[in-house]
Amino acid sequence: MAEVASPTPAEAFELLLSGNKRFVAGSSEHPNQDAARRAETAPGQQPFAVLFGCSDSRLAAEIIFDRGLGDLFVVRTAGHVVGPEVLGSIEYGVELLGCPLVVVLGHDSCGAVAAARAALEDGLAPAGYVRDVVERVTPSVLAARAAGHEEPDEILAVHISHTVDLLLDRSRVLAERVEAGQAAVVGLSYRLADGTARVVASRGLDVGVTAAS
C-alpha cells in the first residue's frame, strides 16, 4: 500500500462528517469498497480515524459514515465501556497506525444505558458479565443525575463525554498526542431514526458542541 500523507485531526473529522451527511441525505457514495481498494489495502492499512463505538447492530461505522475498506479502525463494546483491551486497541490505532482522530460514538436507545438506569431505580442488576457492562455505565448515569439531567439524551451525552475523558485519563499515549496537537478525541451522539451524528464532546479539536435536545 502506497504511503500517503496522514490528514490532520480537523481533516479527518471533516471526512467523517461529510460521509455522515451523505448517509443522512440518502446519497452515499460507498467509497473504497471495490476490488481495487481490497487489493490496495491488502499489504497494510492506514486508517484516518479510530472509531470506538457501541456494539449495537444499528451502529455500523462504515455505513453511517459512508466509508470503506481501510478507512476506519473500529473498536466496539456494549455501551462503549472501556477496559484494557479497548485502551490497547485505541493506542494501537493512534500510535502504530498514526490515526489523528479518535471518535467515541454513542447512540439513543442504548440498552446498556437503559439497563444502568433501571438498576439504579429498582436495585436489580443483570446477571453474568452483562452486570460488568452496566456497572461501568452507572457512574455516568449518577453524574448526569447529580447535574440535574434526567432526559435520556442528556444522560447519553454525559456518558459519551465521560468516556472521552476516561480515554484521555487512562491512556498517556493518547493524552500526549492530543496535547501535542497530533490527535483529537471527539464524542458523537448518533440518532437511530434519522442517522445524524452530533458533537457532544471534543478534546483537541475546535468543533461546535451541541446541547441535548
Score class of each variant (00 low, 15 high):
161 S>K: 11
76 R>K: 12
26 G>D: 09
146 A>T: 08
94 V>F: 07
161 S>V: 04
145 R>E: 13
17 L>G: 00
192 L>V: 15
211 A>G: 14
83 G>D: 15
141 V>I: 14
197 A>Y: 01
130 V>Y: 06
166 L>W: 01
163 T>L: 03
2 A>N: 11
77 T>P: 02
156 L>I: 12
194 D>L: 09
191 R>I: 00
178 V>S: 11
170 R>H: 01
34 D>N: 15
167 L>P: 02
99 C>D: 13
169 D>L: 12
12 A>S: 13
25 A>G: 03
120 L>E: 13
75 V>Y: 03
23 F>Y: 15
137 V>P: 01
123 G>D: 05
121 E>V: 10
146 A>L: 04
88 G>V: 11
60 A>T: 14
65 F>Q: 08
169 D>V: 01
61 A>V: 11
190 Y>G: 07
187 G>I: 04
194 D>Q: 10
42 A>C: 00
211 A>Q: 14
200 V>Y: 07
138 T>W: 00
129 Y>W: 10
60 A>N: 05
175 A>E: 11
127 A>P: 01
174 L>T: 09
101 L>I: 11
127 A>C: 00
6 S>H: 09
108 D>L: 10
179 E>K: 15
117 R>N: 02
106 G>D: 07
80 H>F: 14
41 T>W: 03
68 G>C: 09
123 G>S: 03
181 G>F: 09
116 A>E: 02
65 F>M: 10
16 L>W: 08
182 Q>S: 11
66 D>I: 08
101 L>A: 09
82 V>I: 15
66 D>A: 10
125 A>F: 15
210 T>I: 03
88 G>Y: 06
108 D>E: 12
168 L>D: 02
136 R>G: 01
122 D>E: 11
135 E>M: 12
133 V>S: 06
40 E>F: 14
128 G>C: 02
86 V>E: 07
165 D>I: 03
89 S>E: 06
182 Q>L: 14
21 K>L: 13
155 I>D: 00
169 D>H: 12
205 L>F: 09
38 R>I: 06
116 A>H: 02
209 V>P: 01
44 G>Q: 10
78 A>Y: 05
44 G>L: 09
87 L>P: 00
52 F>V: 06
80 H>E: 15
154 E>M: 03
129 Y>N: 15
169 D>K: 14
31 P>E: 12
97 L>P: 03
29 E>F: 00
86 V>F: 02
166 L>I: 00
71 D>H: 08
117 R>E: 13
117 R>T: 07
152 P>F: 03
105 L>V: 13
155 I>W: 00
60 A>Y: 02
5 A>G: 04
75 V>G: 03
5 A>L: 11
132 D>V: 13
57 S>R: 10
1 M>W: 02
157 A>N: 13
3 E>R: 13
74 V>Y: 06
97 L>W: 06
74 V>K: 06
111 G>M: 07
107 H>T: 03
130 V>D: 01
208 G>W: 01
91 E>F: 10
57 S>I: 06
123 G>I: 09
36 A>H: 06
65 F>D: 02
191 R>K: 08
87 L>Q: 03
